[in-house]
Design a protein around this nucleic acid. Structure first.
Lengths: 418, 418
DNA sequence: GCCAAATAATTCAATGACTGAACAAATAGC
DNA sequence: GCTATTTGTTCAGTCATTGAATTATTTGGC
């Protein structure tokens, strides 16, 4: 169940606040409360929860219903004496978000509706490394067009798109470095400019956001339907190791959007040389290639998800070398994670990506290191758990990030429809 | 020059937005623009910059002037034809913030006015370690009362207070752990409840906020008057090593307010045992005691600021052991900092606290490690610089954090005065 | 079956903050 | 002295929320 990105704290507004701003803000407030409700709330419930009068809530809800953002739920349960309440839910036939992903050996497209349901999901297996970025993106545009058509058949309108890539992406969508794709300074928006638009244009929702895969996977995990903390460290273990840092439902992005490169935190300062130019990086101890090497599988050249499956099989079969390799990787990971927890005060660590199927073996050493080294572990233990979502986390997170923006500013969508 | 904490992004409001919310938000907007201006802006300037009409700006400014938040500057420079503009500045005779600090060997009180000027600053030298928390706080209340009287003599009204302590503080002001003070689970607000109020009560400004010293020092540094980035890692090197993580003018606090314990990031996983129970923590390589030990000064039992001064003297005199000790500490610090920069994408590192006077010797090895290990250093170099503020950074940051809250919600102050 | 109580949702006139156009204030240049 | 320009104020209109009254709809008691 997606919600918009947190709530406004006490800060100065970004610009003039006008008469019309009232309705815009209250549209967002009411929509957010509907999204966050455990059961479909009535207008009277919403009035009580928001502090707005029932008259105002009725007017706001009327707009939301007219704009296909909200619908009345049925049937209505009986509550004893009094007029029956009409529950309100997010509509499944209005706007939706388009998520896209370009990863080492697959392209993916996904449509998530306002209520958070995945309404379309396509994966195209392909080795992207030999492809020029423009060619890879052209194929992705094909996937996007098919997704858009399918969504339209289902009565949905795509309101914006987000693309997940495994690398450093700045705020303008420039992919500064994605080593696993072989991309360097790839201007994705510019390369896509010659193609037809991916979605409708909606005020307040960017046509395309390009974001780091680990960040979007963390976002997907946040909304995966499990009630859990809104603050956690989500680690995607692949060839590279990326992290999404989630605090109170908001992604920490860093000064330029390049945060989360946990795989290049030194775990042994004078240790193994790393492709980044440093020594002793976590990636050299807990990254996919390091684990395969330690397990005696070096040179197998397995695709990313096959590598994790292979390691899982061997571990389940009790293969000594594999178990030892995972223990060593888990210990290195745990040392790094403990430091990160001391620095960032996050009390949940989610093992995602290639680490998710390996969690039974990685979790014990991570927990041991965390328990030993985290200052606050004695009175506030750290949870380490596998991710709920699998390889679809990033593309679902990407689509969901669009939904989040619509929910944060429903007035933009309503203006588009008029 | 203090400003409030950033500007509102596109998020749902925290509660109902009412007719009166318009004026509240526009008061904050106009006041923030006055605070941020390089030269005193006129009403017409503010209208152009905010997008509000001149009529509205005049009405808002009239409220701000009546509330002693803003005053008209004089003399007025001539601009050619047209009515002379009246520049507007933050008032120096209205509300102010009270900052307090309890550190290992001193207590301090500080008053910062709305324009960011320090109007009162007192330091009381004392060894706090033998004192019970209640006794230390009682002495601090004495300092606060004197500061309040002095402020009143200067025509200022204290609108709130913030206390800096060197430890883990949660959002309710409970000091979970401050090893250097010997404090564990100290409920500061409860201990202060029996004393008279420190300041006036102003809606929207907490009576007392207790916060981590490193966080508040970072806040002080942000506003120290140098034009610089609003995102940086501010490291306070003392017995313990704490960090304030500043992103776009907002402090990262973690899930429970316990962030910044950079001294307990492992730099050698199987290295020296640490008092926290782990091994190889940065503090054992770059903390004050480790540096003193490596320089041959172990057992000298020097007060914190004297230790840094002593090390500085020896380094300036070319003492081999000291120079080597600082190089080793700088290298360990640099390894950790590089990892932190890769994780958090911060492009400026500020050496504060006991590290500030030692920056000439620490900076080169830190820079070397950062240049080698930070993924993005090749195209976006990391700046490493000494802090502008000295030991007063935390107490000034504490007072300034109150000013920030007033600026963010001037309506609370205006309501108080009516 | 009717009435009273209870709860949900709508109607309607009043309020307050911003707007845009007009006006007033103050200067420089011809 | 008049015009052009810029700053700041005045004033009637607009709009979104409010609070009280009204309408809609149910249950339970007589």
């Amino acid at each position: 169940m997606w919600q918009c990105q947190g709530v406004s704290r006490t800060v100065a507004p970004a610009g003039a606040v006008r008469q019309g701003s009232l309705r815009e803000l209250n549209l967002a407030l009411v929509l957010d409360r509907i999204a966050a409700a455990a059961r479909p709330p009535s207008r009277a419930d919403l009035a009580a929860r928001t502090g707005l009068t029932r008259a105002t809530v009725s007017a706001v809800v009327e707009d939301l219903i007219a704009g296909r953002l909200v619908s009345e739920a049925d049937p209505t349960p009986r509550n004893g004496a009094g007029r029956p309440a009409r529950g309100l839910v997010l509509a499944g036939d209005g706007p939706a978000g388009l998520g896209l992903e370009a990863n080492v050996d697959y392209l993916a497209a996904c449509v998530v509706d306002l209520a958070g349901r995945v309404r379309h999901h396509t994966v195209l297996r392909a080795d992207l490394r030999p492809l020029a970025p423009a060619d890879a993106l052209a194929r992705l545009v094909g996937l996007a067009a098919a997704a858009r058509a399918d969504a339209a058949d289902q009565g949905l309108t795509l309101a914006g798109a987000a693309l997940a890539v495994p690398g450093l992406v700045d705020d303008a969508g420039l992919v500064r470095l994605a080593p696993n794709l072989g991309w360097r300074d790839v201007d994705v928006p510019a390369l896509l400019a010659g193609h037809p638009p991916l979605t409708e244009r909606v005020d307040g929702v960017p046509a395309l956001v390009v974001d780091n895969e680990a960040n979007l996977a963390a976002l997907g995990e946040l909304h995966a339907g499990v009630a859990g903390p809104a603050s956690f460290l989500h680690i995607s273990g692949e060839v590279g190791i990326g992290a999404g840092i989630m605090l109170d439902g908001t992604l920490f992005r860093g000064a330029r959007g390049w945060s989360g490169e946990i795989g290049h935190i030194p775990v042994q300062p004078d240790g193994r040389p790393c492709r980044c130019g440093g020594r002793g990086c976590l990636e050299q101890y807990a990254g996919q290639e390091a684990v395969l090497l330690a397990a005696g599988l070096a040179g197998a050249d397995l695709p990313a998800d096959t590598a994790a499956a292979r390691l899982t099989e061997l571990a389940e079969a009790g293969d000594r070398a594999t178990l030892d390799a995972l223990a060593e990787a888990g210990t290195a990971l745990g040392v790094t994670v403990a430091g990160v927890v001391n620095l960032l005060d996050l009390d949940t660590v989610v093992l995602g990506g290639g680490y998710a199927p390996l969690a039974p073996w990685l979790r014990p050493p991570v927990l041991a290191e965390v328990s030993r080294r985290v200052l606050t572990a004695a009175w506030s233990p750290v949870t380490v758990r596998p991710a709920v979502l699998g390889s679809e986390a990033a593309v679902v997170g990407a689509a969901g990030s669009v939904v989040r923006r619509i929910l944060a500013r429903p007035a933009g969508w309503l203006a588009h429809r008029r």
